[in-house]
């Protein structure tokens, strides 16, 4: 099972796992980062407040953004067509600040299930889904998702019929990917806000399915 703090190094006297304080010397690249940041501030190129605001903006991105896109695709066929044709343009239409993101949207249907991975590193549509989950960056997920996607999906609780075609997408270069999961049965008549609440992060990576109402 996923574990909240996998990097703890010990167990306290009261039995709680802990991570030791980071009293070790800075690494070469940490020193480099501190030096460049301090120089940029000293020279007036940026300010600590601007850096904090940018970190806030990055942390504020959540899968709720992607869920809004999916819910709109479920309720607006013309939007879904535009999303499948040009994912970036369709997201900008919804006023998301997606920066230079080049987005490809792929659609799950009765016949096709899509799964996203980046075997080379950890490419992920952060502007739309926030930070990737830790497992997305592991060597295990990156290597197994392309080699045995159905076994990986089973471990995520997704059992696909044999006749469903699995399409794995390896984000090797400039594109980022979002899965438009199939709209769950029993959601006819729901508005897009209620629908968005059914769209999980994993369902947009392809390792999960949306919730049923």
């Amino acid at each position: 099972m996923p574990h909240d703090h996998p990097d703890h190094a010990g167990i306290s006297a009261s039995g709680h796992p802990f991570r030791p304080d980071n009293d070790t010397p800075l690494t070469y690249w940490q020193r480099m980062e501190v030096a460049v940041r301090e120089l940029l501030i000293e020279k007036g190129v940026t300010t600590p407040a601007e850096i904090a605001a940018q970190i806030d903006a990055m942390d504020a991105r959540t899968p709720a953004n992607g869920a809004r896109v999916v819910a709109r695709a479920w309720t607006d066929p013309a939007f879904k067509a535009r999303l499948l044709a040009d994912g970036s343009a369709a997201c900008r239409e919804m006023d998301f600040d997606i920066g230079a993101l080049n987005l490809v949207a792929v659609e799950n249907t009765d016949d096709v299930h899509n799964l996203i991975v980046c075997t080379l590193c950890s490419c992920y549509p952060r502007n739309l889904l926030g930070l990737p989950p830790d497992w997305y960056k592991t060597r295990e997920y990156r290597s197994r998702a392309v080699r045995e996607p159905r076994a990986v999906l089973r471990e995520f609780g997704v059992e696909l019929p044999a006749q469903t075609r699995v399409r794995v997408h390896d984000s090797t270069a400039d594109m980022r990917y979002i899965v438009i999961p199939a709209r769950p049965p029993g959601t006819e008549g729901m508005d897009s806000t209620s629908l968005a609440a059914l769209v999980t992060r994993d369902s947009m990576i392809g390792t999960g399915l949306p919730r049923c109402p």
Partner: peptide
């Protein structure tokens, strides 16, 4: 094509971006 006889399901596909 990618995994030969070791593929889970031969007709499943893998898409990648190649220059």
């Amino acid at each position: 094509e990618v995994w030969g006889a070791g593929a889970e399901v031969s007709d499943d596909t893998l898409d990648a971006e190649i220059y």
